[in-house]
Write a protein that binds this DNA or RNA. Structure first.
Lengths: 223, 223
DNA sequence: TGATTTATGTTGCATTTACAACAAAAAGGA
DNA sequence: TCCTTTTTGTTGTAAATGCAACATAAATCA
């Protein structure tokens, strides 16, 4: 465990899960949480739907994908999760017994697992570590909640222009300026808003002609 | 506090926030969390956007609405929250300093407030109460997260029929049967899926004619 | 630099949707 | 029961969207 911790200490120390925990304490905690790591090759399945959701995963290296089957049996990518992020924590925290999704390695990757049962039950009720960890988890999950709510606010608009403007106005408010750079290219923005890229491009052009905004690639300015 | 606790003891004891906490301990906890209640009249504002998000609200009686202004300044109802539910807990848990929404009494209602700072800092680090409360909060918020993800899975389908079938198939899976009753009427289902009621009714009729499903009001049967 | 790849913008068309207006059916109350 | 209200289904139309195909611009790389 120590060697693994040393190799990935930076990524673990900067993980929000270990906020307010001294770097020296992290390996102790990992030990208490029965942490172990596994390496996966690209396209290898990390977990199959139906398997126990009794862990929290941390991506030490690489990238993974969450896959879900729709009612026709078509498998689609629900989420891509990158290095340094945690995954499957929502299921563990919500008390979901079995994973409702498949998890696959998008590329070669290294995953660390924490035992969620140990985390929740506590090795010792007075253990400060567990308290801090759970508080951190709470913050992470509440943050995701807010993220999902925001996204829903945009995607629930009826028209493409409405979705766009809802998103761009929120960005302006968040960045505190009418000029800002978004973290998407056109295709990414279209995927995020759940619309078609070319239709969205057309709407953007229309808005520019109407004098509502200016844009160049990821740069936007609301007028 | 005790009188208030006595009057609303049932609603508090059955609240998931107080799961695994003995009924007798609840008033002690409320005291430690500086709980207080306030009564509001219909249409009265409970909180305005921008005010501190330093509390967790519990609806002891009545119903409230979360309001948000869009980029045109139109105020719309983001959520309706009913008796026995908690609210604003996501903001407190995510460390959001100020409320990004307005909160209004949908009818006359009684609200109890818990001080989130006390909850997170702990009156005493070894206090079992806080640990349990935070674990419960974690479960509640993780559950909302899953709820939001599911909803997104449905609403991200491109067509009305796709949204419907995604939802109905999930319901069948959840209920463990091809026959089930949904917790919505047509208008409610349309709002939930983010589509137009009449267009959805037309799609349902089409699916019935195609022999994909049978339905009567809230009853559905997948074929 | 020139060639190749990727990202973005434009357009036409078939499909889908929102919206409105109305009809029919069911539920609820006097 | 009859009347009223609510819920659900139907239809037509204008608007919006997805999709495909293509043009142009920008970025990448040998």
């Amino acid at each position: 465990m120590d060697t693994i911790y040393e190799r990935y200490s930076k990524i673990l120390q900067s993980n929000p899960l270990f906020k307010d925990i001294a770097p020296d304490d992290i390996p102790i905690m990992l030990n208490r949480l029965n942490a172990y790591t596994r390496v996966y090759k690209k396209a290898e399945f990390i977990r199959h739907s139906g398997e126990p959701a009794d862990f929290i995963g941390i991506i030490l290296a690489g990238e993974i994908q969450i896959l879900q089957d729709d009612y026709y049996g078509n498998r689609s990518i629900t989420a891509s999760i990158t290095e340094g992020s945690i995954f499957a924590e929502t299921f563990a925290c919500a008390g979901v017994k079995r994973l409702p999704v498949d998890i696959m390695a998008a590329g070669n990757c290294t995953i660390m697992y924490l035992d969620s049962k140990t985390l929740f039950n506590g090795c010792d009720i007075h253990c400060q570590f567990h308290y801090t960890l759970i508080k951190n988890l709470l913050g992470i999950i509440a943050g995701k909640n807010i993220y999902l709510n925001q996204k829903h606010k945009y995607t629930s608009q009826k028209t493409t222009a409405g979705k766009l403007l809802a998103y761009l106005n929120d960005q302006a408010k968040q960045k505190g300026s009418d000029e800002f750079v978004i973290p998407f290219n056109r295709q990414g923005l279209a995927d995020y808003l759940g619309v078609e890229r070319s239709a969205m491009s057309a709407e953007i052009s229309k808005l520019v002609k109407m004098g509502v905004l200016e844009t160049k690639r990821s740069y936007f300015k609301l007028l």
